[in-house]
Design a protein around this nucleic acid. Structure first.
Lengths: 170, 170
DNA sequence: ACGTCAAGTCCAATCATTGAACTGGACGGT
DNA sequence: ACCGTCCAGTTCAATGATTGGACTTGACGT
């Protein structure tokens, strides 16, 4: 995806960025963790040109990070879902998110251990249970108060607490 | 750095990527952790066009991730060094590196707790001492064996074990 | 005064991204 | 069977970013 310069390096960071380091890609993956699964939902939530979204999604499928299948519920839609390899990107995503939260812009949502409701610490660890839940055990809940409110269906669905990886109903 | 689309979002991940998500940027930061400090050393190690490197370095300085000062040792060079905010990117970098190592390409180097020499686990934690060392306490050591050997001075200096953040002598 | 070196800048060619309009298959209603 | 709609793209011209190479500027060192 990112050309030879990245792939040529004998460095696993460069290789990771070769797949995940293009513009938009990590935001698409974030949305996939939020439970977004359809082309039009990614498009509306990210405000990304359709051509780029199409390109990125097929790149991610080819890289084994997303899986594309026909939607069992309707034969005219497809769903994109994180593969096991994709789900293992959670720690990297969370670490960037924590950094952004501290150094750029306080997020409007928290991430809590679904089992006990305790907010995760900066390592993604639940201080109450002393374990590091995987994304499937994390609940993301919007902070109440000042939200400059996007109005696309995904943003609306995310106004209530939501367990990561669980399909959003939009 | 990455335009309005990223900055506009009320999401700390998007904001982080706004600063750190451009092409080359995370590799520059990786090199800064390795102890690279001079323009020409970044350039030679990354094979990046000088114009782009110049652009990225000033962006990172402006974003408060790198600090640019005259080299105390010579009045014709400058050094770029990670600020405290920059050093806090280590967990995110390490998480991506671990993912790349597992899913893309086994790295040619390990990361060990400098105090005891134990390789860090996937969370960046030292299993022997049961703590998570900061980058200043991490030793990176090249795996021996098949290395397709770059020959620039930085790559050569990194052929021996090196403590992160410590200036490389190139 | 001369050549060298570090750290850039400048430029034309190439490549990627954008936004808007278009396509084509699948429904759903009548 | 026909019509309008919706999803998931593709196509295209305009704009913006990246590239590699040549050029510039300000210190040195001799």
């Amino acid at each position: 995806m990112l050309g030879k310069d990245y792939e040529a390096q004998d460095c696993s960071l460069a290789r990771a960025l070769g797949v995940v380091g293009e513009r938009w890609t990590l935001l698409i993956i974030r949305d996939a963790f939020y439970g977004v699964r359809r082309f039009n939902d990614f498009q509306a939530h990210l405000d990304i040109p359709r051509a780029v979204l199409s390109d990125r999604l097929s790149g991610l499928v080819e890289a084994g990070i997303l899986d594309r299948r026909p939607d069992p519920a309707s034969r005219r839609t497809h769903v994109y879902e994180l593969t096991a390899a994709g789900r293992e990107l959670w720690p990297a995503l969370y670490a960037l998110l924590v950094w952004g939260d501290r150094h750029r812009h306080r997020t409007s949502r928290t991430y809590q251990h679904a089992a006990c409701g305790t907010p995760l610490d900066e390592h993604g660890c639940c201080p109450h249970c002393a374990l590091t839940p995987g994304p499937e055990d994390i609940l993301t809940v919007p902070r109440r108060g000042r939200g400059k409110a996007r109005s696309d269906p995904v943003a609306v669905a995310l106004r209530r607490p939501h367990r990561l990886l669980e399909p959003l109903d939009v």
